[in-house]
Design a protein around this nucleic acid. Structure first.
Lengths: 137, 137
DNA sequence: GCTTGCCCTAGAGTTCACTTCATAGTTTAT
DNA sequence: ATAAACTATGAAGTGAACTCTAGGGCAAGC
């Protein structure tokens, strides 16, 4: 399979695929060269890219992916280690979600304030005061 | 107030403050030059930086902030427009949160699978089969 | 045999929000 | 008077994950 074909199949650009190769995410199980120096991809390449996408979809950076794939290739981890890794990832994602929750708290406050400013400017004023009193900022 | 003093007060570096100025987030209500060309910051600068931080904390990029501040300075928006903007921001953040939720769905699946693999490899196998059957991938 | 459309490489460019660097002028303390 | 500590500038560097460019080599159709 040539690079454009693989790119179309995977919904990636040829640049991205070559980039992944340069980053060491693909090896000669996935890509070899024809006599004309064109890259030729095996079916394993498709699986590899699916795997890469899957791990990206759970918030892995390429650097992390590199490690993950290395260990995956070497069958280096016990099931328990994998479980621990997943738990760590979950914590990470949950932390990021909490940041967004905090943003939403602020946005909701703003929204309430602005809505009140239309309906009941008096109360809005109080809200602002309460915030000045209660906020640590 | 000189730059280091302001930086300390706001928990920023002097580089960041100069960077904000270069980006047009501060104007001469906030900073002027002394005869020796040193920057001299007004109290308004403190308020300005607080505002910048607040908007950053709800997920605004500096580019967006630039617009927001421009409109803020010009008093260009009605309360209703501001409400709409906040609603838009909320949607944006909620969208990102959903992405993380999707990651967590995947991670939880992985975790369940790996846990089952220890306790009941038979069932784990079935789980995998069910996934292959039901997944669109 | 010429055009069109693939393929190759190395390297530069992109975005964001800083951060660091090199170089130099100013102020303060000893 | 001199060193330390501040200030200034413009430019380059950072990291992540691509994305694009320039300049060239192959391949398939007419």
């Amino acid at each position: 399979m040539k690079i454009q074909e693989l790119a179309d199949k995977m919904g990636l650009t040829i640049h991205t695929i070559r980039y992944y190769e340069k980053e060491g995410l693909l090896d000669d199980r996935h890509v070899r060269r024809e006599s004309n120096n064109y890259r030729n991809y095996s079916d394993e390449a498709v699986e590899r890219l699916k795997l890469i996408k899957k791990f990206q979809s759970i918030g892995c950076s390429l650097a992390e992916l590199k490690e993950v794939l290395r260990d995956h290739d070497a069958n280096a981890n016990t099931n328990q280690q994998i479980i621990d890794w997943i738990r760590g990832k979950k914590k990470e994602i949950e932390g990021k979600k909490e940041e967004y929750d905090q943003m939403l708290v602020t946005l909701n406050w703003m929204l309430e304030y602005r809505t009140l400013l239309i309906d009941d400017p008096q109360k809005a004023q109080e809200m602002l005061k309460a915030w000045h009193a209660g906020s640590s900022d």
